[in-house]
Structures are given as structure tokens and as C-alpha cells.
Design a binder for these strands. Structure first.
Length: 257
DNA sequence: AAACCTTCCAACCGCTCCTTC
DNA sequence: AGAAGGAGCGGTTGGAAGGTT
């Protein structure tokens, strides 16, 4: 039954989303949750507008979809976002803005609503505390000193990561931006934060067509930026986990600790 | 102990985009 | 080609829970 187009099966014409009469609103009860979960387990996804009637729920289809995708779906992670997920959200938000669904698509088991809530209640405040504007991701007060200006001179790889960070609007004027990402406890993470590593990476990694397509959609423009975005993303891997630190070291012929 | 305030998050609303008729 | 409807998205809200006075 999975994948059946029930709107067609039932021969429905176009009808309003819900008739409003007798449609319940507000918090879901355990009984309603059970009905929806049992129904979805049995039938899988299809026309949401048909779900409430067939599942025996006095809800509109929209409400059912929301409840399922945000709360009842079996593949959901529960609990607060961890540090890596938080960094990834910040990085993606810097380029995608408030496109929560796009951001959520890159965090398996997390919903757009959850990420949006977490952003508004936690991350926003953290960024402000760190002196970063949560909307623009620019420093709230960035001193316009020469050492903070981008330097993309390939002859000076030691400045590469901070140059890229500047391009992303991260507060490179202090060490704060770097310490906010890196982990003293993890030698491999500290290694990949070396500018030489990033330079080598951008020099040696050629990527697959699909990889470049995906990252061009995110909006990074240069190879260095894209590699940097990987590092900022925390796990330096693609969304399917196909390429992690091990993948980097393989590309570069390096032995990570 | 009670009143008030703040935080958090599930759920709703209204809009846009895409598909179907 | 245009209208109608469905699905999904982002912004907002309401109320529960926890904290403070």
C-alpha cells in the first residue's frame, strides 16, 4: 500500500483542506498519536488530506502531517542538538539564511521546526554573546584593521583559513572564532584546522561532479571556501557520511592521528 | 506560598510553489 | 493557459514548565 496515490484512488475532486467543522486543534493526545502512528505504519505516506478520515482522527491533514514529521516519525532524534550539529546549523545558516527545511535536510533525524526553535532559543543568543550578528553572521563590531582583511594569496597559505573565514563573515579578528569551532581534545580536528592542511586540501581535492553540484547549490564560490565549509561543518563529510576525516587524509596522503 | 517573569517548544497560520485538472 | 488544490515552508503564538522575587 505504500506510495499509493489515495487522492486518485478515492476519485476526489478538489476540495478544501478541511471543512473546519469538528476539526480538533491544540495538543495531541496519546490516543491520537497512536492512531496516527498505527495508520502510518500500516499504510505509509500518501495524500495527507485523506489521512485523518481514514485514520479516524478529527484533525485536518495539515495537522497530521506536522505531527508526523515533527514528532512521531520513527527516524527522529530526540533531545537538544549536539555541538557538531549546532556548528553545522550555524555554518549552513550563514549561507542559506532562514531556509530551515534546507538546513534540516543536512541534519539526519532533525526537523526544520526543531532547528528553527533551537536557533531562536539557543544559537541566536550564543552568537550575540560571541559578538556575531545572527542575521548577517558578521561581527557586531569588526575592527577594520589590515590584518583582518582577506588574503587569498596562494603564496601565503598560512592565512588561507582566516581569509576564507572572513569571506564567510566570521570574526577572524580574534582567536575566538577558531576556538569556537576546534576541539582541544581531538588531535585530528586540531590538525585539520591548520592552515597548511586547508591549503593542501584545496590544492589536492578535485571532488566528484555531484559533490561540486551540491556545494555550488549551497553557495560557496571557491574551492577554498568549499573546503573550509566542510571543516566548519564539523565532520568534514558529505550528507551521507561518505567522506570524513579519513577521506581527507586519503586524498592528501596524510596519516591522521 | 504565591505572584510574576522567562524560557522553551509544539502547534497553528498564512503564504508560496508545484501539480493537477 | 489559467484556475484550483495539495504539500511544504517560515513566522508566530499559546501555554506549560521552570526560575525568580
Amino acid at each position: 500500500m505504500v506510495g499509493v496515490d489515495w487522492c486518485k484512488v478515492r476519485g476526489m475532486g478538489r476540495q478544501p483542506c478541511c471543512d473546519k467543522l469538528g476539526v480538533k486543534k491544540g495538543p495531541w493526545t496519546a490516543e491520537e498519536d497512536n492512531k496516527l502512528v498505527n495508520f502510518m505504519r500500516t499504510h505509509g505516506y500518501y495524500c495527507w488530506r485523506a489521512v485523518p478520515k481514514l485514520a479516524g482522527l478529527r484533525r485536518c491533514g495539515k495537522s497530521c502531517r506536522l505531527r508526523w514529521t515533527n514528532y512521531l516519525r520513527p527516524d527522529l532524534k530526540r533531545g537538544l542538538l549536539n555541538h557538531d550539529e549546532e556548528q553545522l546549523v550555524i555554518d549552513l545558516h550563514a549561507r542559506l539564511g532562514n531556509r530551515w527545511s534546507k538546513i534540516a535536510a543536512r541534519l539526519p533525524g532533525r526537523t526544520d521546526n526543531e532547528i528553527k526553535n533551537h536557533w531562536n532559543t539557543h544559537i541566536k543568543k550564543k552568537l550575540i554573546k560571541m559578538g556575531i550578528d545572527p542575521v548577517t553572521h558578521e561581527p557586531l563590531q569588526r575592527p577594520d584593521t589590515p590584518q583582518n582583511k582577506p588574503n587569498l594569496d596562494p603564496n601565503q597559505p598560512e592565512n588561507l583559513s582566516s581569509s576564507c573565514a572572513h569571506e564567510f563573515g566570521l570574526p577572524t579578528g580574534t582567536d575566538e572564532w577558531r576556538s569556537s569551532w576546534e576541539s582541544d581534545d581531538d588531535p585530528s580536528i586540531n590538525l585539520i584546522w591548520s592552515d597548511a592542511f586547508l591549503h593542501d586540501l584545496s590544492e589536492n581535492f578535485h571532488g566528484t561532479d555531484s559533490w561540486w553540484k551540491e556545494y555550488s547549490e549551497i553557495g560557496t564560490s571557491s574551492k577554498e571556501e568549499t573546503c573550509f565549509s566542510w571543516l566548519v561543518a564539523g565532520d568534514a563529510g558529505d550528507s551521507d557520511g561518505n567522506l570524513g576525516f579519513g577521506g581527507f587524509s586519503e586524498i592528501l596522503g596524510m596519516n591522521l592521528p
